[in-house]
Amino acid sequence: MIRYAIKRLLLAIPTLFVMLTAIFVLVRLVPGDAAAVILGDQASEASLRALRTTLGLDQPVYMQYLSFIGDVLTGDLGRSLSSGRSVGQEVLLVLPYTIELTLAAIVIGVALGLPLGIATAVRRNGWVDYAGRLISLVGLSFPAFVSGILLLIVFAIQLGWFPVLNSGSSGDPIERLRNLALPAFNLGIIMMAYVVRVTRSSMLGVLGEDYIRTARAKGVRPGRLVIRHALRNGLIPIITVVGLYFGTLIGNSVLTEIIFNRPGLGKLILGALNARDYTLLQGLMIIFAICVIAVNTLTDLAYGLVDPRVKYK
């Protein structure tokens, strides 16, 4: 397992380089002069030239690339053009909120979706199955911004259980949880919908396998049969979907953070886009790329833990 883990971690390095290169090229492909965009139409030639020198835009492309990679590797993501703070600082300020929201959404999605998915597969074509499929369809059909608004109307405005606007910076853990509940649930139900679907289909496949019949022939009772024999074999596609959904979660979290007025990476992106804050955007792209690569690597490691065959390939 350790050798497998080291191999996976090493494989993440070239992926990271490809991503960094892609981001570098993408930013340079944006038409127009970055300095002119940043300073606007009224800027003087001298100030434009000065900014190009600060940004390194007067250097040849390969030099720009090398210094870009060097900066990233040393953890320097540049300074935000609008706030003047370093990108690292900007991100660290809001990252805990995004991590909190994402993890809470994943926990809600898996904690609700996995048992429901198993139940729909075991009780195939029974009422549990139809109910589970209906719930998952509803979760998939509602865009995050619609379900977010509905949640706000019902639970924050009508029932008043949760705050409408996030205070965000509150230190009180209870208050923090109350702030987290609705946005996390908003993202969690989408996650749950995916998990129910993939768990159902994966478990249906596994429950038809020969080794399940073998286990029944040994006298294994239904509960143990599902958990010990079927679930572990059905986990791989579920892990895949949870890992993949992590990326989508970031996209959905942009909308969720705006609706619930929560600080986070999503709102930071929107702000950077509106302010044409190139360096902040580039820095955020790098942070997201690193997050996605990290989650993918974790997914790979989870495969190795779940399925002994993976390690030996």
Binding site: Y211, R213, T214
Partner: peptide, 10 residues
């Protein structure tokens, strides 16, 4: 089927 009748994760 000895190839498929044993649980691959145990």
């Amino acid at each position: 089927e000895p190839m498929t009748s044993l649980n691959p994760t145990m």
